[in-house]
């Protein structure tokens, strides 16, 4: 257990991201580092219900805080360029779809609902760009050293195989909240920080076990 704890602690503190988080907000840094350790503990066979509850209490608190202070208003804002595109598209839809477009429900779907969903899914996608976390040449975005990428992939595959419910639910909730908030610069989608640490730590643990078996 001690070794496992050291692995997750090492991963949580051995990256560029955590220092950006601490530099910006010490409390946030502490909470996310603690969340990384707790999430890792939920993925171990000797997990307890209390830890799972603690993970989701911290996640809920952080999510509410982020949604309150950094909700992405761009999602509902339509720029002048977007207005032009939308107007043109309205004409195309009108010409091709006739009454399917030209009624209240159609106009709401195509002019209001679809653009909002498109923006949210764009944010969702950019958070899913795993390369950005490891391979980015932009110093604003680089969060983990590149040599941790194989460990991350290994850990991710491990999670997919064993299907660890708490981690998957955590990842999905963190991803959804991150798609709705706008955090500029180095902080990035910080709710995903514990999940990334978890995958890297699982990958490292896997290799550690294999190495121990070999010797």
């Amino acid at each position: 257990m001690k070794r496992k704890f050291l692995i997750i602690l090492g991963v949580s503190l051995g990256n560029f991201w955590v220092y950006q988080l601490f530099a910006n907000n010490i409390l946030m840094g502490l909470l996310l580092t603690s969340e990384s350790i707790l999430l890792f503990l939920t993925a171990l066979p000797e997990r307890s219900k209390k830890i799972q509850v603690a993970v989701f209490i911290i996640l809920t608190g952080l999510s509410l805080y982020l949604l309150a202070i950094s909700f992405n208003k761009e999602i509902f804002y339509i720029s002048d360029y977007e207005k032009i595109v939308q107007k043109n598209r309205g004409e195309y839809f009108g010409a091709e779809l006739g009454k399917i477009y030209g009624n209240k429900a159609g106009i709401f779907y195509f002019d209001k609902f679809r653009p909002v969903v498109s923006k949210i899914s764009g944010n969702f996608a950019s958070n899913l760009d795993f390369e950005k976390y490891f391979l980015s040449k932009n110093p604003e975005e680089g969060r983990y050293p590149v040599f941790l990428l194989p460990l991350f992939i290994l850990g991710l595959v491990r999670l997919i195989i064993v299907y660890q419910k708490t981690s998957v639910i955590y990842f999905l909730l963190a991803l959804i909240v991150s798609s709705l908030v706008s955090i500029s610069g180095k902080m990035g989608p910080m709710l995903l920080f514990p999940f990334f640490n978890l995958c890297i730590a699982l990958g490292a643990l896997n290799i550690w076990r294999k190495w121990q078996k070999d010797i």
Partner: peptide
């Protein structure tokens, strides 16, 4: 690696 990027493939 860009060909394995989820945003490129799905979004």
């Amino acid at each position: 690696l860009v060909y394995y990027s989820l945003p490129n493939l799905f979004f």
